[in-house]
Amino acid sequence: MSEPILEMTDVSKRYRTAGGFGRGRKGFLAVDGVSLHVERGEALGLVGESGSGKSTLARMANGLVVPTSGTVRTDGQDIARLGRRGLRRLRRNVAMVFQDPLASLNPRQTVRQTLENVFRAHGETTSTAELVALLESVGLGADYLGRYPHEASGGQLQRVAVARALALKPDLIIADEPTSALDVSVRAQILNLLADLQRDQGISFLHVSHDLAVIRLYSDRVAVMQRGRIVETGPSDEIFRSPQHPCTRALVEATPEAELPA
């Protein structure tokens, strides 16, 4: 069996808190001894309430947040041992899509500049044809190359953000609430796009969301976080059919379905 694309072992993150509000001098333990892995080609869904530590955990997976303890391996390599160049290589393989596309794109750059910069940062050049093909793979036409972020809708911008993540052919995409800021009718388009990328290009996903229905639709396996710990993990179908941990059960029960009340 090949190595998992992402393997986190006993990872913790403690944030120092200014002024010692509430949690005292020891700081705030956002992630508390978590181990998880993502197999190649797999979509792992990470759910939990706000403050459960899921975003911190996701950011540790690509080195945006440095763990206080524990190891993070991508592709078998311990990312704490990577130098500057190693980290750069890591970020080719592990791309990220954020919640708010407008905030994650530079308002003063056209889509072309945004995409070209990704290649430039990794010492590569690119052609217009390649950029057009990239946009087409996320369902956008060539005319978007000349547009600025304010000239596109939220759904279109999120497609641009996905194109940027895809530019260097990553093995793993970490998506942190990628559809939470989008309109309902547009959210489905982006979810389908991400599902297609996993199926057609074999890209692995770590999908962070507070929305269980989204995670259900989208993930092979699910990990449930509560107060910095993973309290339940398993195949998506099993977790939703028979949630074991009280936290998972509460989440499943509270999720409003677009159904008539019984």
Partner: peptide, 22 residues
């Protein structure tokens, strides 16, 4: 277009695609 919690139970384990509005 709204994802549902029981989506995959309905389809016998097959992954459902949402019917998006273009």
């Amino acid at each position: 277009a709204t994802p549902r919690l029981d989506a995959r139970l309905d389809t016998g384990g097959e992954r459902t695609r949402l019917r998006a509005i273009p």
